[in-house]
Design a protein around this nucleic acid. Sequence first.
DNA 1: ATTAGAATAT
DNA 2: TATATTCTAA
Length: 282
Amino acid sequence: MGEEAGGYDFDFGGGGYGGYDGRVTEWETGLPGCDELTPLSQPLVPPGLAAAFRIPPEPGRTLLDVHRASSATVSRLRSTSSSPSSGNGNATGGGSFPSFPGKGAAAAGDDSSNRDNNSAESAGDKSAAATKRARLVWTPQLHKRFVEVVAHLGIKSAVPKTIMQLMNVEGLTRENVASHLQKYRLYVKRMQGLSNEGPSASDHIFASTPVPPSLREPQVPHAAAMAPAMYHHHPAPMGGVAAGHGGYYQQQHSGHAVYNGYGGHGGGGGVSSYPHYHHGDQ
DNA sequence: ATTAGAATAT
DNA sequence: TATATTCTAA
């Protein structure tokens, strides 16, 4: 099923990058297409109907909420059924959540990551005693995910915490994202100056994923398009996808509907990616 | 109290 | 250079 439908589709399989890793097409036959699926962020009972039956309206769920919920589920699963010694099935498909030190070489297609985690730390250990984390390495896969999220958030709301949550990569911290974001913004700015193509060689990682059009400029609205604003205003509180980017409330017909990382992608489930870390010193 | 963002440190 | 950490202001 074509996930990369429009321009930027969240390819949140996380694993889909390489192409087909362990994808069993038989499992997919007869399943609805991605664009026929209703996003999780959308209430099952339409608001009108809900009102008619006095059903308390479901609180608006943003993509963010959905992701939070799924993370919660995953971590609950992890703590409940954690069978540490036996190693977690770190399947090729990537749908695995090896606990922390899961260094099991991540396999092919999925983006893999490893962290060096010095002291053995079980998943539930909250007494993190200032153990220094290994340096995160921004792989192209990780960066791609980052860019997708930033693009979908729009410049306004693309702030570290939100980005981090949406990326939903285990072990990724807000600081990691903040630092990367700082550099990325610089990169984007530097490149608009040189409107001509030409990611310089130094920009390894940033050049690995093209900067989405929505981020390329402050997206200054056309004066012409803006002028008649006094006539109608859009009552749409959050409905539509604003010009360049914007709402993550997805309209079914408008492009991407599948946001959750679960779908039947061969790749990893929503949470299956781990950042790469770099063995450090100290 | 939190956290975004710039500045600075490694 | 890439990422982390610190600092200041929202």
